[in-house]
Design a protein around this nucleic acid. Structure first.
Lengths: 239, 239
DNA sequence: CGTCAATGGTCTGACACTAGCCCAATAAGA
DNA sequence: TCTTATTGGGCTAGTGTCAGACCATTGACG
């Protein structure tokens, strides 16, 4: 923890890559997290939101279309339609995904996720929530608990992100989304079993109960336990 | 929390600004956080670390030199030397800084900081720490506790960042650094009083004790209490 | 069955940024 | 006093990105 290593924290690259690459990454996030139902917003609008030119956005869309994630149709009522269905997890996919990611990056991502999601739950449990927000949280819980295996990942993501978003901090929401994204591919490689869903449902209940009760310690602990299960499973492949 | 607002989390601008602006921002961070003692690394090296061209870096350095933060000297043993001393806080500086930042951004930053720093402390308290890391933490504590008013902010920053860095997650370290930076200007506008330092010292002790004892709940609570003091002070200016 | 609004497709001129090269200055050390 | 390694200063050719305009296509609706 000398001066050099402290510097490295701030003296990292200013930009993750070129605009094209970053855009592809972003769009993949939107698609894989299931944040958009059937088609992307119009190019002009999307380019404005992403702060890039239409040219660059279109290159990214073309790349994703060639990779099979999107199908683009012209004319009014056209657009970039999603044609992505998460592949059915196969034996050994997970191991390969974990190894691809690398020991250091995986540990980093899991630690990061643990910290920000626990922090978000704690903050939310500390805040004075409006009845509307409490309802939103209950609604997300209901959705994920009543989902079938096909929709499970998407609704689970929505539930976890909702906790961060309800804090009202967009920085925190972005951090949680980022953390989730770094393990999305790994999660998608884990088969969704009825038993896992039921187990997770109990933990989700505990999280919501603690948050609504205004119990930061309980919320923190519940999230930590919930995430530790997945983390331990993934870390197991590194041995 | 409809689809639109969930999208907004991910569909934010891919780049914060142009390379020049982001570089200036980064260098200011390094300077204001006191992460570098007397001069910046050589241009070629720095440009490589920041992932930008020397031309862009040099523009940023020139801007900072004109603003009085740096003095550049040519030739061997030359470089960009720091000539920045934090201005002595004056009455009303703080109020102006808070108002400049805006209600939403300030709340966002404070919430974000609360979440990531609490999360980092919790994670660190959960981890099995090597004796070396325990020593590093004790050392940072000792430094900040024995500092005078002049060095206080810098060593306080180092202490808080050390918690995140000791988790071994560079993502988490970056998030904490980011969170800290968003309130640096405000903190610098708060006079450093002996009474505040003593109060903070007790809280710092509690944080370290909980972490070293492997008590995540206690660590979380100690950090939350520590940060709540500052947060309440700043929020007071928004009323 | 035509109209037209909304959407993707394409082009151009301008600017930002980069990589790589060489020059100029400086101060430690022979 | 001279050499030389190290550092900032400056130039150029090439590429990435942007803003804005205009074209092409489509399908709902009158």
């Amino acid at each position: 923890m000398d001066e050099v290593s402290r510097l490295a924290t701030v003296l990292r690259p200013v930009r993750a890559g070129n605009a094209f690459e970053e855009t592809v990454e972003r769009l993949l996030q939107v698609i894989k997290l299931g944040l958009v139902a059937e088609k992307l917003p119009p190019e002009r609008e999307l380019a404005a939101q992403l702060g890039i030119s239409r040219v660059t956005l279109r290159e990214a869309i073309r790349a994703l279309a060639e990779a099979g994630y999107l199908t683009v149709r012209r004319g009014r009522y056209g657009g970039a339609f999603l044609t992505y269905t998460p592949p059915r997890p196969r034996r050994d996919d997970l191991r390969r995904a974990v190894v691809d990611m690398g020991t250091d990056d995986l540990g980093d991502a899991l630690t990061f996720r643990m910290a920000v999601e626990c922090g978000a739950a704690q903050v939310l449990a500390t805040a004075a929530l409006t009845e509307e927000r409490r309802d939103t949280l209950r609604e997300r819980l209901r959705e994920v608990n009543s989902s079938g295996p096909d929709d499970y990942r998407r609704l689970d993501t929505a539930f976890h992100l909702a906790i961060a978003e309800l804090t009202g901090s967009s920085l925190l929401a972005a951090a949680c989304a980022d953390a989730r994204l770094r393990v999305t591919d790994l999660l998608n490689a884990i088969p969704v079993l009825r038993r896992n869903i039921e187990h997770a449902a109990i933990q989700h209940e505990a999280i919501v109960t603690a948050i609504l009760a205004g119990d930061p310690e309980g919320a923190r602990r519940a999230v930590a336990e919930h995430l530790e299960g997945t983390a331990a499973l993934l870390r197991g492949f590194l041995a």
